[in-house]
Design a protein around this nucleic acid. Structure first.
Lengths: 186, 186
DNA sequence: CCATTATTGAAACAGTCGTACCATATACTG
DNA sequence: CAGTATATGGTACGACTGTTTCAATAATGG
């Protein structure tokens, strides 16, 4: 008996909190302004998430979840060539709509370098990419266990993303990807 | 007349503050712990630097200065091939002794994405690289104004650095650079 | 209505933050 | 010595932090 729990509330505030973090970043995140923007109270945030730390990790998980599903929806078809895959990934990840995700991604990376204990599964998240990418770049890898080509491909994407986010020079970064595709062909 | 100023003191604390920031990161930097570690007081830090903001930018400038001079000392000779240059840069920047610089580098980048107004010359700092790199990679660029090849080269370096700092997998990242050199040769 | 459980508000706690104010100490010139 | 400028300590202010405590409200079942 007693009043029934309302799990939908927690999920709703989690969704809106994720929006907020994507828009404002993790760095200066504070419960009171966050609660004000979400039309709730710091009291309720702690009630729903236990602590700020747990709130943040819930938000990061939610952001990862969103990014993963949207990427899956936008990958080229199975039969596409490696180059088409690469261009598809770059187009998707460098699109302006992805900018908040990219920003949060770099922010978590940087914070993880200073406090690795807060992000226990960060290294695993990177190596996970190699299984998916390794499959799609099967044609240009030297074997089924070749992690070198996926590593290089991901490095190019992340490095160009780094450049694009700081300089905003889309033309130059796009052409650099073209050049990389050209190198891969030969 | 009056007591003569002592500019050496400010420089000494700047040097030690830079050490501290390289060791502890920018994120949680606070005057009182910093002052305690430097055997001085928050009072003196503000006296010497005016405000925390100015202190931070002085520290960042000092860190950049150190990094630049150490890189200049370690670059291969003029006559070296582009590939040797690339390997030299990677070896230098990925060395364990550079880890604090790299960490700070990524941290500033991430913070700059959220607060670009604090880092007015960040985009310029990136494009500056292209003039120096463009010169050393003259052989494989398509012309004197080719910024695409330097862009790609820097992207590979930064992307691999990102990978190395999170996974710590030196063998895989080193091999990925080998693979990139191989692609550049053909 | 009552018991029970979930939800929520208001306020306070114990800290930390950057910074400002005021006094004092120090080192120099004349 | 006095005068003067720099250097420094101590302290407090106001704002902010995550979190806790206490009390009140809401919604259900019996």
């Amino acid at each position: 008996m007693g009043r029934p729990p309302d799990p939908a509330r927690r999920e709703a505030t989690l969704a809106r909190a994720t929006d907020y973090v994507l828009a404002h970043g993790l760095a200066g995140l504070s419960l009171r302004p966050l609660a004000a923007a979400l039309d709730t109270s710091p009291r309720m945030l702690l009630y729903d998430f236990g602590s700020k730390r747990q709130l943040v990790s819930a938000v990061l998980a939610e952001a990862r979840r969103r990014g993963a599903t949207r990427l899956a929806e936008n990958l080229p078809a199975e039969a596409a060539s490696p180059e088409e895959h690469l261009r598809g990934i770059w187009a998707w990840v460098s699109a302006p709509e992805r900018a908040p995700f990219v920003r949060l991604f770099f922010e978590v990376h940087a914070d993880g370098l200073a406090h690795p204990e807060n992000y226990p599964d960060q290294a695993a998240a990177i190596t996970d990419w190699f299984h998916t990418l390794g499959a799609t770049f099967r044609d240009i890898t030297t074997g089924p266990d070749d992690t070198v080509t996926p590593t290089l491909v991901m490095a190019v994407i992340r490095g160009l993303l780094f450049d694009l986010t700081t300089t905003g020079d889309r033309g130059r970064t796009d052409r650099a990807l073209d050049r990389f595709c050209e190198l891969l062909r030969h």
